[in-house]
Design a protein around this nucleic acid. Structure first.
Lengths: 227, 227
DNA sequence: AGTCTCCGAATTGTATGCAATTCCTCTCAA
DNA sequence: TTGAGAGGAATTGCATACAATTCGGAGACT
Protein backbone atom coordinates (compact mmCIF):
# COMPACT_ATOMS: atom_id res chain seq x y z
CA UNK A 1 0.00 0.00 0.00
CA UNK A 2 2.94 2.30 0.40
CA UNK A 3 4.18 4.82 -2.08
CA UNK A 4 7.21 3.72 -4.00
CA UNK A 5 9.86 6.24 -3.10
CA UNK A 6 12.15 5.53 -5.99
CA UNK A 7 11.96 3.47 -9.11
CA UNK A 8 14.59 1.23 -7.57
CA UNK A 9 12.03 0.01 -5.10
CA UNK A 10 10.34 -1.68 -7.99
CA UNK A 11 13.20 -4.12 -8.36
CA UNK A 12 12.27 -5.66 -5.07
CA UNK A 13 12.29 -9.29 -3.94
CA UNK A 14 15.91 -10.03 -4.77
CA UNK A 15 18.25 -9.99 -1.83
CA UNK A 16 19.10 -6.43 -0.88
CA UNK A 17 22.72 -5.51 -1.57
CA UNK A 18 23.77 -3.68 1.54
CA UNK A 19 22.31 -3.46 5.01
CA UNK A 20 22.37 0.33 4.83
CA UNK A 21 20.27 0.30 1.66
CA UNK A 22 17.80 -2.15 3.12
CA UNK A 23 17.50 -0.03 6.24
CA UNK A 24 16.98 3.10 4.20
CA UNK A 25 14.02 1.58 2.42
CA UNK A 26 12.62 0.08 5.58
CA UNK A 27 12.81 3.37 7.46
CA UNK A 28 11.43 5.38 4.54
CA UNK A 29 8.55 2.97 4.31
CA UNK A 30 7.89 3.12 8.03
CA UNK A 31 7.83 6.90 7.91
CA UNK A 32 5.56 7.12 4.89
CA UNK A 33 3.22 4.48 6.28
CA UNK A 34 3.08 6.20 9.62
CA UNK A 35 4.74 3.46 11.67
CA UNK A 36 7.29 6.11 12.55
CA UNK A 37 5.40 9.27 13.45
CA UNK A 38 6.68 12.75 12.64
CA UNK A 39 8.86 13.97 15.48
CA UNK A 40 9.87 10.47 16.53
CA UNK A 41 13.54 10.12 17.45
CA UNK A 42 15.65 7.62 15.54
CA UNK A 43 17.82 6.06 18.21
CA UNK A 44 20.84 4.56 16.51
CA UNK A 45 21.54 1.92 19.13
CA UNK A 46 17.92 0.85 19.35
CA UNK A 47 17.59 0.59 15.57
CA UNK A 48 20.87 -1.32 15.39
CA UNK A 49 19.60 -3.83 17.93
CA UNK A 50 16.20 -4.11 16.31
CA UNK A 51 17.67 -4.96 12.93
CA UNK A 52 20.65 -6.91 14.25
CA UNK A 53 23.30 -4.74 12.66
CA UNK A 54 25.91 -2.34 13.92
CA UNK A 55 25.36 1.38 14.16
CA UNK A 56 27.31 2.05 10.96
CA UNK A 57 24.67 1.00 8.42
CA UNK A 58 21.99 2.58 10.61
CA UNK A 59 23.79 5.90 10.46
CA UNK A 60 24.29 5.64 6.72
CA UNK A 61 20.61 4.92 6.19
CA UNK A 62 19.66 7.93 8.27
CA UNK A 63 22.09 10.14 6.33
CA UNK A 64 20.56 8.98 3.06
CA UNK A 65 17.13 9.96 4.30
CA UNK A 66 18.13 13.47 5.31
CA UNK A 67 18.50 14.90 1.82
CA UNK A 68 15.13 13.53 0.80
CA UNK A 69 13.63 15.54 3.64
CA UNK A 70 12.00 12.69 5.52
CA UNK A 71 14.46 12.97 8.39
CA UNK A 72 16.16 15.88 10.10
CA UNK A 73 19.52 15.64 11.81
CA UNK A 74 21.30 17.96 14.19
CA UNK A 75 24.86 17.40 15.29
CA UNK A 76 25.20 15.28 18.42
CA UNK A 77 21.47 14.90 18.71
CA UNK A 78 19.21 12.07 17.67
CA UNK A 79 17.84 12.27 14.14
CA UNK A 80 14.08 12.76 14.09
CA UNK A 81 11.36 12.09 11.57
CA UNK A 82 10.67 15.41 9.88
CA UNK A 83 7.81 17.38 11.38
CA UNK A 84 7.17 20.39 9.17
CA UNK A 85 5.24 23.33 10.51
CA UNK A 86 1.63 23.76 9.44
CA UNK A 87 2.72 26.62 7.21
CA UNK A 88 5.41 24.51 5.60
CA UNK A 89 2.93 21.68 5.05
CA UNK A 90 0.50 24.00 3.31
CA UNK A 91 3.32 24.97 1.02
CA UNK A 92 4.08 21.34 0.30
CA UNK A 93 0.46 20.66 -0.59
CA UNK A 94 0.46 23.70 -2.83
CA UNK A 95 3.63 22.57 -4.55
CA UNK A 96 2.22 19.07 -4.90
CA UNK A 97 -0.89 20.46 -6.58
CA UNK A 98 1.24 22.38 -9.05
CA UNK A 99 3.50 19.42 -9.77
CA UNK A 100 0.66 16.94 -10.20
CA UNK A 101 -1.08 19.45 -12.43
CA UNK A 102 2.04 19.82 -14.55
CA UNK A 103 2.32 16.06 -14.93
CA UNK A 104 -1.32 15.81 -15.97
CA UNK A 105 -0.87 18.56 -18.52
CA UNK A 106 2.18 16.94 -20.09
CA UNK A 107 0.50 13.54 -19.97
CA UNK A 108 -2.45 14.87 -21.94
CA UNK A 109 -0.10 15.92 -24.70
CA UNK A 110 2.49 13.16 -24.63
CA UNK A 111 0.88 9.87 -23.64
CA UNK A 112 0.93 7.12 -26.23
CA UNK A 113 -2.34 5.40 -27.00
CA UNK A 114 -1.14 2.39 -24.99
CA UNK A 115 -0.49 4.65 -22.01
CA UNK A 116 -3.91 6.25 -22.35
CA UNK A 117 -5.44 2.81 -22.43
CA UNK A 118 -3.57 1.85 -19.26
CA UNK A 119 -4.76 5.03 -17.57
CA UNK A 120 -8.36 4.26 -18.42
CA UNK A 121 -7.82 0.76 -17.06
CA UNK A 122 -6.56 1.88 -13.67
CA UNK A 123 -9.30 4.46 -13.51
CA UNK A 124 -11.89 1.76 -14.07
CA UNK A 125 -10.32 -0.46 -11.41
CA UNK A 126 -10.70 2.40 -8.94
CA UNK A 127 -14.36 2.76 -9.86
CA UNK A 128 -14.98 -0.87 -9.03
CA UNK A 129 -13.08 -0.57 -5.77
CA UNK A 130 -15.39 2.11 -4.44
CA UNK A 131 -18.04 -0.52 -3.73
CA UNK A 132 -15.68 -2.69 -1.68
CA UNK A 133 -15.34 -0.08 1.03
CA UNK A 134 -11.66 -0.90 1.52
CA UNK A 135 -9.97 2.50 1.73
CA UNK A 136 -6.48 1.03 2.06
CA UNK A 137 -6.87 -0.96 -1.14
CA UNK A 138 -8.35 2.07 -2.87
CA UNK A 139 -5.42 4.14 -1.70
CA UNK A 140 -2.98 1.57 -3.06
CA UNK A 141 -4.47 1.65 -6.54
CA UNK A 142 -4.88 5.39 -6.31
CA UNK A 143 -1.11 5.70 -6.01
CA UNK A 144 -0.80 3.56 -9.13
CA UNK A 145 -3.25 5.85 -10.90
CA UNK A 146 -1.15 8.89 -10.18
CA UNK A 147 2.03 7.00 -11.03
CA UNK A 148 0.64 6.24 -14.48
CA UNK A 149 0.15 9.94 -15.04
CA UNK A 150 3.68 10.77 -13.83
CA UNK A 151 5.06 8.24 -16.29
CA UNK A 152 2.84 9.63 -19.04
CA UNK A 153 4.40 13.06 -18.62
CA UNK A 154 7.56 11.61 -20.19
CA UNK A 155 9.80 13.61 -17.92
CA UNK A 156 11.62 11.37 -15.46
CA UNK A 157 12.88 14.21 -13.30
CA UNK A 158 9.48 15.83 -12.97
CA UNK A 159 7.99 12.44 -12.12
CA UNK A 160 10.62 11.96 -9.46
CA UNK A 161 9.95 15.36 -7.91
CA UNK A 162 6.22 14.78 -7.84
CA UNK A 163 6.51 11.31 -6.37
CA UNK A 164 8.88 12.37 -3.64
CA UNK A 165 6.70 15.34 -2.77
CA UNK A 166 3.74 12.99 -2.51
CA UNK A 167 5.76 10.73 -0.23
CA UNK A 168 6.76 13.58 2.06
CA UNK A 169 3.17 14.67 2.46
CA UNK A 170 1.87 11.17 2.89
CA UNK A 171 2.35 10.90 6.68
CA UNK A 172 -0.09 13.77 7.10
CA UNK A 173 -2.87 12.26 5.05
CA UNK A 174 -3.74 9.30 7.25
CA UNK A 175 -7.13 10.76 8.04
CA UNK A 176 -8.42 10.34 4.52
CA UNK A 177 -8.31 6.57 4.65
CA UNK A 178 -11.17 6.59 7.13
CA UNK A 179 -13.45 8.76 5.09
CA UNK A 180 -15.46 6.47 2.84
CA UNK A 181 -17.51 9.27 1.32
CA UNK A 182 -14.32 10.81 0.00
CA UNK A 183 -13.79 7.88 -2.37
CA UNK A 184 -16.76 8.68 -4.57
CA UNK A 185 -15.84 12.35 -4.79
CA UNK A 186 -12.24 11.48 -5.49
CA UNK A 187 -13.26 9.25 -8.35
CA UNK A 188 -15.43 11.97 -9.83
CA UNK A 189 -12.47 14.35 -9.73
CA UNK A 190 -10.26 11.70 -11.30
CA UNK A 191 -12.83 11.29 -14.01
CA UNK A 192 -12.57 14.90 -15.04
CA UNK A 193 -8.79 14.54 -15.19
CA UNK A 194 -8.97 11.33 -17.20
CA UNK A 195 -11.44 12.75 -19.68
CA UNK A 196 -9.22 15.76 -20.30
CA UNK A 197 -6.11 13.63 -20.72
CA UNK A 198 -7.78 11.18 -23.08
CA UNK A 199 -9.03 14.13 -25.10
CA UNK A 200 -5.51 15.54 -25.22
CA UNK A 201 -6.63 18.77 -23.56
CA UNK A 202 -3.51 19.75 -21.62
CA UNK A 203 -4.85 22.93 -20.08
CA UNK A 204 -8.02 21.28 -18.82
CA UNK A 205 -6.08 18.29 -17.48
CA UNK A 206 -3.83 20.70 -15.59
CA UNK A 207 -6.75 22.59 -14.11
CA UNK A 208 -8.70 19.51 -13.15
CA UNK A 209 -5.74 17.86 -11.49
CA UNK A 210 -4.95 21.05 -9.61
CA UNK A 211 -8.52 21.16 -8.35
CA UNK A 212 -8.28 17.52 -7.31
CA UNK A 213 -5.13 17.97 -5.23
CA UNK A 214 -6.47 21.13 -3.65
CA UNK A 215 -9.39 19.06 -2.43
CA UNK A 216 -6.87 16.66 -0.92
CA UNK A 217 -5.25 19.59 0.85
CA UNK A 218 -8.62 20.79 2.09
CA UNK A 219 -9.22 17.34 3.55
CA UNK A 220 -6.00 17.69 5.49
CA UNK A 221 -6.84 21.17 6.69
CA UNK A 222 -10.31 20.15 7.73
CA UNK A 223 -8.91 17.19 9.64
CA UNK A 224 -6.34 19.23 11.55
CA UNK A 225 -8.99 21.78 12.48
CA UNK A 226 -11.07 19.10 14.16
CA UNK A 227 -8.29 18.31 16.59
CA UNK B 1 29.84 32.38 -6.99
CA UNK B 2 28.26 29.04 -6.23
CA UNK B 3 24.62 28.33 -5.76
CA UNK B 4 23.59 27.94 -2.16
CA UNK B 5 22.33 24.41 -1.89
CA UNK B 6 20.41 24.86 1.32
CA UNK B 7 19.50 27.73 3.53
CA UNK B 8 21.93 26.34 6.05
CA UNK B 9 24.78 27.30 3.83
CA UNK B 10 23.93 30.89 4.55
CA UNK B 11 24.94 30.52 8.18
CA UNK B 12 28.53 30.08 7.13
CA UNK B 13 31.72 31.25 8.81
CA UNK B 14 31.08 29.72 12.20
CA UNK B 15 32.97 26.51 12.85
CA UNK B 16 31.28 23.60 11.10
CA UNK B 17 29.75 21.09 13.49
CA UNK B 18 30.75 17.75 12.10
CA UNK B 19 33.34 16.68 9.57
CA UNK B 20 30.71 14.81 7.58
CA UNK B 21 28.63 17.96 7.25
CA UNK B 22 31.59 20.03 6.21
CA UNK B 23 32.55 17.43 3.63
CA UNK B 24 29.01 17.31 2.30
CA UNK B 25 29.03 21.02 1.62
CA UNK B 26 32.52 20.97 0.20
CA UNK B 27 31.72 18.12 -2.20
CA UNK B 28 28.39 19.62 -3.21
CA UNK B 29 30.13 22.88 -3.93
CA UNK B 30 32.87 21.19 -5.94
CA UNK B 31 30.28 19.37 -8.01
CA UNK B 32 28.14 22.43 -8.65
CA UNK B 33 31.16 24.55 -9.47
CA UNK B 34 32.51 21.93 -11.79
CA UNK B 35 35.66 21.09 -9.83
CA UNK B 36 34.29 17.56 -9.74
CA UNK B 37 33.09 16.73 -13.23
CA UNK B 38 30.04 14.54 -13.90
CA UNK B 39 31.09 10.92 -14.03
CA UNK B 40 34.08 11.45 -11.77
CA UNK B 41 34.59 8.69 -9.22
CA UNK B 42 34.61 9.61 -5.54
CA UNK B 43 37.39 7.51 -4.08
CA UNK B 44 36.78 7.22 -0.36
CA UNK B 45 40.39 6.64 0.60
CA UNK B 46 41.66 9.46 -1.57
CA UNK B 47 39.07 11.90 -0.21
CA UNK B 48 39.83 10.79 3.34
CA UNK B 49 43.52 11.51 2.80
CA UNK B 50 42.86 14.79 1.06
CA UNK B 51 40.75 16.12 3.93
CA UNK B 52 42.70 14.40 6.69
CA UNK B 53 39.81 12.43 8.08
CA UNK B 54 38.86 8.79 8.19
CA UNK B 55 36.62 7.13 5.64
CA UNK B 56 33.62 7.26 7.96
CA UNK B 57 32.71 10.95 7.56
CA UNK B 58 33.58 10.72 3.86
CA UNK B 59 31.08 7.92 3.42
CA UNK B 60 28.42 9.78 5.38
CA UNK B 61 28.90 12.88 3.25
CA UNK B 62 28.54 10.82 0.09
CA UNK B 63 25.40 9.16 1.41
CA UNK B 64 23.89 12.57 2.16
CA UNK B 65 24.53 13.65 -1.40
CA UNK B 66 22.87 10.65 -2.99
CA UNK B 67 19.30 11.57 -2.17
CA UNK B 68 19.78 15.05 -3.52
CA UNK B 69 20.74 13.48 -6.84
CA UNK B 70 24.20 14.98 -7.18
CA UNK B 71 25.89 11.63 -6.60
CA UNK B 72 25.04 8.08 -7.61
CA UNK B 73 26.09 5.03 -5.66
CA UNK B 74 26.09 1.36 -6.52
CA UNK B 75 26.91 -1.31 -3.97
CA UNK B 76 30.58 -2.16 -3.78
CA UNK B 77 31.49 0.32 -6.46
CA UNK B 78 32.84 3.83 -6.16
CA UNK B 79 30.24 6.57 -5.94
CA UNK B 80 30.30 8.84 -8.97
CA UNK B 81 29.16 12.39 -9.65
CA UNK B 82 25.79 12.08 -11.35
CA UNK B 83 25.91 12.14 -15.12
CA UNK B 84 22.34 12.28 -16.40
CA UNK B 85 21.61 11.33 -19.98
CA UNK B 86 20.91 14.10 -22.47
CA UNK B 87 17.25 13.15 -22.39
CA UNK B 88 17.15 13.32 -18.61
CA UNK B 89 18.88 16.69 -18.66
CA UNK B 90 16.34 18.09 -21.06
CA UNK B 91 13.67 16.96 -18.63
CA UNK B 92 15.47 18.72 -15.80
CA UNK B 93 15.64 21.96 -17.75
CA UNK B 94 11.97 21.63 -18.58
CA UNK B 95 11.11 21.06 -14.93
CA UNK B 96 13.31 23.96 -13.92
CA UNK B 97 11.48 26.24 -16.34
CA UNK B 98 8.15 25.21 -14.86
CA UNK B 99 9.35 25.61 -11.29
CA UNK B 100 10.96 28.99 -11.86
CA UNK B 101 7.83 30.10 -13.67
CA UNK B 102 5.68 29.00 -10.73
CA UNK B 103 7.87 30.94 -8.33
CA UNK B 104 7.65 34.05 -10.49
CA UNK B 105 3.88 33.74 -10.67
CA UNK B 106 3.47 33.42 -6.92
CA UNK B 107 5.99 36.18 -6.35
CA UNK B 108 3.97 38.56 -8.51
CA UNK B 109 0.97 37.99 -6.27
CA UNK B 110 2.59 37.64 -2.88
CA UNK B 111 5.66 39.84 -2.63
CA UNK B 112 5.56 42.63 -0.09
CA UNK B 113 6.48 46.08 -1.26
CA UNK B 114 9.84 45.71 0.49
CA UNK B 115 10.48 42.52 -1.42
CA UNK B 116 9.52 44.15 -4.70
CA UNK B 117 11.92 46.95 -3.91
CA UNK B 118 14.71 44.45 -3.23
CA UNK B 119 13.97 42.69 -6.50
CA UNK B 120 14.22 45.93 -8.42
CA UNK B 121 17.50 46.63 -6.64
CA UNK B 122 19.14 43.35 -7.61
CA UNK B 123 17.84 43.77 -11.13
CA UNK B 124 19.49 47.17 -11.35
CA UNK B 125 22.76 45.78 -9.98
CA UNK B 126 22.73 43.24 -12.78
CA UNK B 127 22.21 45.97 -15.36
CA UNK B 128 25.30 47.79 -14.13
CA UNK B 129 27.32 44.56 -14.15
CA UNK B 130 26.76 44.01 -17.85
CA UNK B 131 29.31 46.70 -18.64
CA UNK B 132 32.01 45.13 -16.48
CA UNK B 133 32.25 42.10 -18.70
CA UNK B 134 32.79 39.80 -15.71
CA UNK B 135 30.51 36.83 -16.41
CA UNK B 136 31.35 35.08 -13.13
CA UNK B 137 30.36 38.13 -11.11
CA UNK B 138 27.21 38.51 -13.19
CA UNK B 139 26.40 34.88 -12.60
CA UNK B 140 26.82 35.31 -8.87
CA UNK B 141 24.35 38.17 -8.67
CA UNK B 142 22.10 36.40 -11.13
CA UNK B 143 21.72 33.58 -8.60
CA UNK B 144 20.79 36.18 -6.00
CA UNK B 145 18.21 37.62 -8.40
CA UNK B 146 16.51 34.28 -8.79
CA UNK B 147 16.79 33.59 -5.05
CA UNK B 148 14.90 36.81 -4.34
CA UNK B 149 12.07 35.55 -6.52
CA UNK B 150 12.05 32.13 -4.81
CA UNK B 151 11.75 33.85 -1.47
CA UNK B 152 9.03 36.12 -2.82
CA UNK B 153 6.91 33.12 -3.71
CA UNK B 154 6.35 32.62 0.03
CA UNK B 155 6.50 28.87 -0.27
CA UNK B 156 9.61 27.44 1.35
CA UNK B 157 9.19 23.99 -0.11
CA UNK B 158 8.72 25.23 -3.65
CA UNK B 159 11.75 27.47 -3.22
CA UNK B 160 13.76 24.49 -2.02
CA UNK B 161 12.72 22.37 -5.00
CA UNK B 162 13.56 25.11 -7.45
CA UNK B 163 16.92 25.86 -5.91
CA UNK B 164 17.99 22.25 -5.79
CA UNK B 165 16.90 21.73 -9.38
CA UNK B 166 18.96 24.72 -10.38
CA UNK B 167 21.94 23.28 -8.51
CA UNK B 168 21.63 19.92 -10.22
CA UNK B 169 21.57 21.53 -13.64
CA UNK B 170 24.37 23.93 -12.84
CA UNK B 171 27.31 21.66 -13.81
CA UNK B 172 25.98 21.59 -17.36
CA UNK B 173 25.76 25.34 -17.79
CA UNK B 174 29.45 26.23 -17.68
CA UNK B 175 29.41 27.28 -21.29
CA UNK B 176 27.22 30.28 -20.65
CA UNK B 177 29.80 32.05 -18.55
CA UNK B 178 31.91 32.58 -21.65
CA UNK B 179 29.19 34.12 -23.73
CA UNK B 180 29.27 37.84 -23.09
CA UNK B 181 26.50 38.61 -25.57
CA UNK B 182 24.18 36.45 -23.54
CA UNK B 183 24.30 38.87 -20.62
CA UNK B 184 22.45 41.64 -22.42
CA UNK B 185 19.76 39.29 -23.66
CA UNK B 186 19.45 37.72 -20.23
CA UNK B 187 18.91 41.11 -18.66
CA UNK B 188 16.24 41.97 -21.21
CA UNK B 189 14.42 38.75 -20.36
CA UNK B 190 14.78 39.51 -16.67
CA UNK B 191 13.33 42.91 -17.30
CA UNK B 192 10.11 41.46 -18.69
CA UNK B 193 9.86 39.21 -15.63
CA UNK B 194 10.50 42.06 -13.23
CA UNK B 195 8.00 44.35 -14.88
CA UNK B 196 5.31 41.68 -14.65
CA UNK B 197 6.08 40.93 -11.01
CA UNK B 198 6.13 44.59 -10.00
CA UNK B 199 2.83 45.04 -11.78
CA UNK B 200 1.41 42.03 -9.90
CA UNK B 201 0.61 40.23 -13.13
CA UNK B 202 1.09 36.59 -12.10
CA UNK B 203 0.25 35.03 -15.44
CA UNK B 204 2.62 37.26 -17.36
CA UNK B 205 5.38 36.77 -14.81
CA UNK B 206 4.95 33.02 -15.18
CA UNK B 207 5.10 33.18 -18.95
CA UNK B 208 8.06 35.51 -19.08
CA UNK B 209 10.07 33.47 -16.60
CA UNK B 210 9.27 30.30 -18.50
CA UNK B 211 10.50 31.91 -21.70
CA UNK B 212 13.67 33.04 -19.93
CA UNK B 213 14.57 29.58 -18.64
CA UNK B 214 13.80 28.00 -21.98
CA UNK B 215 16.39 30.32 -23.46
CA UNK B 216 18.82 29.03 -20.88
CA UNK B 217 18.01 25.49 -21.96
CA UNK B 218 18.50 26.44 -25.60
CA UNK B 219 21.93 27.79 -24.71
CA UNK B 220 22.81 24.40 -23.27
CA UNK B 221 21.47 22.53 -26.26
CA UNK B 222 23.29 24.79 -28.67
CA UNK B 223 26.51 24.31 -26.75
CA UNK B 224 26.28 20.53 -26.69
CA UNK B 225 25.58 20.48 -30.41
CA UNK B 226 28.81 22.31 -31.16
CA UNK B 227 30.86 19.52 -29.62
C1' DA C 1 45.21 -13.50 -31.91
C1' DG C 2 41.32 -13.69 -29.18
C1' DT C 3 38.60 -15.14 -25.26
C1' DC C 4 37.70 -17.32 -20.97
C1' DT C 5 38.87 -18.40 -16.19
C1' DC C 6 40.88 -17.88 -11.97
C1' DC C 7 43.46 -15.58 -8.48
C1' DG C 8 45.33 -11.66 -6.00
C1' DA C 9 45.20 -6.74 -5.17
C1' DA C 10 42.37 -2.93 -4.41
C1' DT C 11 38.08 -0.95 -2.87
C1' DT C 12 33.78 -0.80 -0.55
C1' DG C 13 30.69 -2.53 3.46
C1' DT C 14 30.32 -3.47 8.39
C1' DA C 15 31.67 -3.95 13.26
C1' DT C 16 33.72 -2.12 17.20
C1' DG C 17 36.23 0.95 20.30
C1' DC C 18 37.17 5.44 21.77
C1' DA C 19 36.41 10.64 21.74
C1' DA C 20 33.25 14.48 21.96
C1' DT C 21 28.97 16.36 23.12
C1' DT C 22 24.52 16.41 25.09
C1' DC C 23 21.15 15.77 28.58
C1' DC C 24 19.52 14.34 32.82
C1' DT C 25 19.61 14.47 37.63
C1' DC C 26 21.10 15.83 41.96
C1' DT C 27 22.66 19.43 44.86
C1' DC C 28 22.65 23.84 46.78
C1' DA C 29 21.45 28.60 47.34
C1' DA C 30 18.14 32.47 47.00
C1' DT D 1 9.68 26.23 45.92
C1' DT D 2 12.35 27.44 42.13
C1' DG D 3 16.38 28.22 39.57
C1' DA D 4 21.29 27.61 38.39
C1' DG D 5 25.21 24.79 38.12
C1' DA D 6 28.12 20.61 38.23
C1' DG D 7 29.00 16.01 37.33
C1' DG D 8 28.05 11.59 35.54
C1' DA D 9 25.40 8.65 32.30
C1' DA D 10 23.92 8.15 27.78
C1' DT D 11 24.23 9.18 22.95
C1' DT D 12 26.32 10.70 18.80
C1' DG D 13 30.79 11.46 15.91
C1' DC D 14 34.95 9.53 14.29
C1' DA D 15 38.86 6.22 13.61
C1' DT D 16 40.36 1.79 12.71
C1' DA D 17 40.23 -3.22 11.86
C1' DC D 18 38.23 -6.73 9.42
C1' DA D 19 34.87 -8.92 6.00
C1' DA D 20 32.82 -9.00 1.45
C1' DT D 21 32.94 -7.83 -3.23
C1' DT D 22 34.80 -6.09 -7.42
C1' DC D 23 38.37 -5.27 -10.76
C1' DG D 24 42.44 -6.22 -13.48
C1' DG D 25 45.79 -9.10 -15.26
C1' DA D 26 48.25 -13.55 -15.98
C1' DG D 27 47.75 -17.76 -17.94
C1' DA D 28 45.39 -21.54 -20.40
C1' DC D 29 42.67 -22.96 -24.04
C1' DT D 30 40.43 -22.63 -28.73
Amino acid sequence: MSIMLTHEVAETDWPRRTRAEELRMRLADDIVRGQLAPGAALDEIELAKRFSVSRTPVREAIRMLTSSGLVEVRAHRAAVVARPTHEHLIGMFEAMAELEALCAGYAAKRMSSAERHALAGVHERLRLLIQDGDPLRYHEINEAFHAVIYAGAHNAYLAELTLSTRARVQPFRRAQFRNLGRLTKSHAEHDRVVQAILRGDGLLATQNMYAHIIKVRDEYEHYTETI
